[in-house]
Amino acid sequence: MSPNRHLHAWLLLLPAMAMLAAFTHIPAISTLLHSFFESPIAGKTGSFVGLDNFEFALEDDIFWQVLWNNFWYAVVTVPTSIVLALVMAIWVNSQMSGRAIVRLAYFTPTVLPMIAVANIWLFFYTPEIGLINNLLEKLGFEGQNWLGDPDLALPSLMVMTIWKEAGFFMIFYLAALQSLDQSLYEAAAVENSSRWQTFRRITWPLLMPTTLFILINALINAFKLVDHLFILTKGGPNNASNLLLYYIYENAFSFFDTAYAATLTTILLIILALLAWVQFGVLDKKVHYR
């Protein structure tokens, strides 16, 4: 390549690189740096404290609780919404009347803003006047204080998250399903393969790249989607439904402890980087690409 073409390439890359640097890389690095300092008070920068903030995190019960909550949150919501998405996609991919409407219905939760959705669900979950309890009581079951009971608050959030996420992932599966080679299915039909066998041997392996993509997105979302907490529980009762990112927000904007917020953000970044490494480095090798 001539030097001119190199210059060209760099110029074309420049806008994207500038944006990424300004809004992603520089903030990430300054977050890391902040985590080694005290919180600034009254505009004066705090002094260097080394790993003190990280030691504080290790002793912070709430930090461990939100981390644990976030772990369960991911473990439950990610696989469930992926399986649901796949089932829904296969269903609306089949030849049936009115499938456009069903597709739209499944996709609606994704279109709605999270805050609006949370406000609606707040009234679903609320004990005396809420939809869910009224239905349960009509069916003869005991109503629950969904968001006010520490054992139920986090699971209630999970249900809403799955409802919100599954429709979104369905779209990816649907697109993938429609691009699959039909001749493989014809061959399977000739071989008299059962529906389960066809799914297990043809559909599932061919969908693996999509599944990996969705898995990455779902895991990241499990850590970064906390909008609904502001409306539904504010992390309560007693941190039972608090998640890592919401705790970071509390530290930064409620407690003005920016240094500790930076420390927790660094920890969050490390977790996400590890997850990405596992996914790209390990799982990617097992995925069958055409």
Binding site: E128, I129, I231, P237
Partner: peptide, 18 residues
């Protein structure tokens, strides 16, 4: 009710006679 009682929906509870 036992457990926590939601600030945001309480007014509605009252208005609906709950």
């Amino acid at each position: 009710p036992q457990g926590t009682i939601e600030w945001g929906t309480l007014r509605q509870n009252f208005l609906e006679g709950k």
